[in-house]
Design a protein around this nucleic acid. Structure first.
Lengths: 217, 217
DNA sequence: TTTTGCCCTACATGTTCATGTAGTTCTGAG
DNA sequence: CTCAGAACTACATGAACATGTAGGGCAAAA
């Protein structure tokens, strides 16, 4: 995949001139890296990639023209094998979240020491997920927010009820459920009534909401 | 918080005798640690904590009697300030997820080098989130699975429509929405119709489902 | 100024839902 | 065996919803 297997091809996107220079120097200092480009913005990133075929891209998150997250999305779509390492001054939760979801493999703060940046790039290149400590902590925190609130009291739905509830969350009507489950309309009513009782709700909307929020299905 | 501020008080829960001994030796080797206990199971963990007041607990995830995740849940509930570092042989996704959600601050593999374990404990003690590389990668992967599928085409709901949609997901009826938004019932109908158009759905259930799944609200 | 977009109101019609009551199977536990 | 629980069917009624049409007010853009 690499044109020179002995070196990690690194491209850099960073609008701050001083920082770009200093990072460029850093990469040139280490023989394991080959700097394939240092750009002030990612406007021509797709072309750049086609020409220089980097293994790892180090990207500032805030840049003029196109922001880093859009760039990540674009790159990840066209070149999913390229490892993207985001770099930023702030550990803003939303940006972390969006970067990761857009396809970045790691996220480091700008105050990271040069040697650690070097390590992070090597990690990223071999499939790792380098993160600054502060980022890791934030990721875990966000992760926990998605944890199922569950287990307040276990809601014991029968298989049939789960099937019907799933159909409800898919927006099906009683009639459609009756067809897809091959039961009568009245039986659908019957099951839904029981589901309501078990979930302590009184409408399809509430049932769907509860089912999705608490991941009952 | 620490009875001896110069040392990190560490307790160990590990059912494998050899591993327990070897980790114990490791902690005793480093003057920055004070081993406050090494246990084969977490059955009396609450009592142990009360007696020995550890700062950091290193816990094997699979143990007889009570498994590590249950133990984490218990400890986190009673002593949220204690940092728990999970340790396991396998990087099983479900266990990682459950451990983190239960309140563990870090997760390392047993093959981690002793020096790195020492670092991980120090990290955990100062509020970090030490993770093995393989774990970090898995966490990010899981994280992405929760990412909004969005961005197919951005759905542009007005503030009012978002308000109404939110109310729908809370299981409110048209009448209740009219009251809480202080608008007429017909206006609610009007907005909901528009929401349906924008979301390409035709019922409250579908709208709620789409809103929750794609995190539009 | 006119247009456009958004928010709002109103009325009408047919459909779907929520709920209650009541009865039939079938299966497995006592 | 028979009893309990589950899944199912049936019918009935009032409430809630989906949709269409038709319009007024108001602020920003053209």
């Amino acid at each position: 995949m690499t044109s020179n297997p002995s070196k990690i091809r690194v491209s850099l996107y960073e609008d701050n001139h001083a920082l770009r220079e200093s990072l460029s120097s850093l990469f040139e200092l280490f023989p394991e890296f080959e700097l394939t480009g240092a750009y002030a913005n990612p406007l021509r990133i797709i072309e750049n990639i086609k020409e220089r075929k980097p293994d790892v891209i180090v990207m500032d998150i805030d840049m003029p023209g196109m922001n880093g997250i859009e760039a990540v999305t674009l790159v990840h779509k066209h070149f999913p094998e390229i490892k993207i390492l985001m770099q930023t001054v702030f550990d803003d939760e939303e940006k972390i979240f969006n970067s990761i979801c857009a396809g970045a493999v790691g996220y480091i703060l700008k105050k990271t020491r040069p040697l650690d940046i070097v390590e992070a790039i090597k990690d990223a290149n071999v499939g790792g997920s380098p993160m600054s400590q502060a980022i890791a902590t934030k990721v875990l925190k966000m992760f926990r927010q998605y944890s199922p609130p569950k287990a307040d009291e276990k809601i014991n739905l029968s298989d049939r009820e789960k099937e019907v509830l799933l159909a409800l969350t898919q927006g099906k009507s009683y009639k459609m459920i009756a067809e897809s489950c091959a039961i009568s309309l009245d039986t659908v009513r019957f099951h839904i009534k029981n589901i309501y009782d078990k979930l302590h709700v009184h409408s399809m909307t509430e049932a769907v909401s509860k089912a999705l929020r608490e991941k009952l299905i």
